[in-house]
């Protein structure tokens, strides 16, 4: 098969998934092969424009000869692999991952796909008891590695905590954070290379953090918002969206998405403008566009406010 990107001839690898034979180009992952066969495989930490980190483990599959399940998003196909995606073990692991995340984080802003999968795997996050109340502001930021206070008996510990609002462009609601590492990757080598955030702490106290949990305006953040774009659960959110949601005015049903080109420099980044009631409420970029791969800069992501004023021309006055 000729790779359309490189024009080179590619070796094909044949493997068996759920009893069906499939042939995919060398270097593909099991997930790629599953998708070729249209096998519905859930993912959370995987995204096309980022390096797979295989940490959520919701895409695990059973591989003959492997003692443990393997992450399909990052495991490369090998000839004669025999993979099962529908076994009891696979179903249990996926269900448990959803239950663990559902019981410890707030998934209410996760896309419908996540909730559909949770239903199909019969995940019941309530099995672990009532969720603990939110931690005090900053408490989780100061957890010391290797030490913890056991939960109040009968309660399921959570990462619930107050929303961090420290700038006008985006908010960080870490109660929703499933620690998928995507934001760290987007801020780091996979896109922006600013390295303003990292995973800090360890275990259940691991969290996304700036150095010393300093507020974003004191950090290295350059507000490209690429972390928001890759966040799968709404933990990172443009303030424009956050404020509308807070006011109960966020209405996806009334929103349209129009794709256009960023008005600033000459790179030609595709912007998808999310418009509600003739107002831009959010700007994104498609993952599959060769110019941006879904990434933008501060101007493209947030610099559209200047067209927002609905009054006569004078009120859209130059500053």
């Amino acid at each position: 098969m000729i790779d359309p990107a490189t024009g080179r001839n590619q070796r094909m690898i044949e493997l068996t998934i759920d009893g069906r034979t499939v042939s995919v180009p060398e270097g593909s992952t099991i997930l790629d092969a599953c998708r070729t066969l249209e096998i519905d495989t859930p993912t959370l930490c995987y995204l096309e424009n980022l390096t797979p980190v295989n940490v959520c483990r919701v895409c695990v599959v059973e591989l003959e000869g492997s003692r443990v399940l393997v992450p399909s998003c990052s495991r490369k196909v090998e000839p004669k692999m025999v993979v099962r995606t529908d076994s009891e073990r696979v179903r249990l692991s996926r269900k448990m991952v959803y239950e663990f995340l559902g019981s410890s984080t707030d998934l209410s802003f996760a896309p419908g796909e996540v909730h559909r999968q949770m239903e199909s795997y019969e995940a019941k996050p309530d099995r672990f008891g009532a969720r603990t109340l939110p931690a005090k502001s900053g408490e989780r930021d100061h957890a010391h590695a290797g030490h913890h206070q056991p939960a109040v008996a009968g309660h399921a510990q959570t990462v619930f905590q107050p929303v961090k609002v420290d700038n006008d462009l985006y908010v960080r609601d870490y109660s929703r954070c499933i620690l998928c590492y995507k934001c760290v990757e987007a801020c780091g080598e996979d896109a922006q290379n600013t390295f303003a955030i990292s995973v800090a702490g360890r275990g259940f106290d691991a969290r996304i953090s700036t150095e010393y949990a300093t507020p974003l305006p004191d950090s290295a953040c350059v507000y490209c918002g690429n972390c928001i774009a890759v966040c799968p659960t709404g933990a990172l959110m443009a303030k424009s969206e956050h404020d509308l949601r807070e006011r109960g005015q966020w209405e996806p049903a009334k929103q349209s998405v129009t794709s256009t080109i960023c008005p600033y420099c000459g790179v030609g980044c595709t912007l998808e403008l999310h418009v509600q009631d003739n107002r831009i409420v959010k700007a994104t970029s498609p993952l599959d566009h060769s110019v941006t791969s879904g990434h933008l800069c501060i101007k493209g992501r947030f610099g559209w406010e200047f067209v927002q004023n609905l009054g006569p021309l004078t009120s859209r006055d130059a500053p």
Partner: peptide, 11 residues
């Protein structure tokens, strides 16, 4: 205490 926190099942 010792889980690194990287993967969901262990964390």
């Amino acid at each position: 205490n010792e889980s690194c926190g990287q993967c969901v099942p262990c964390r």
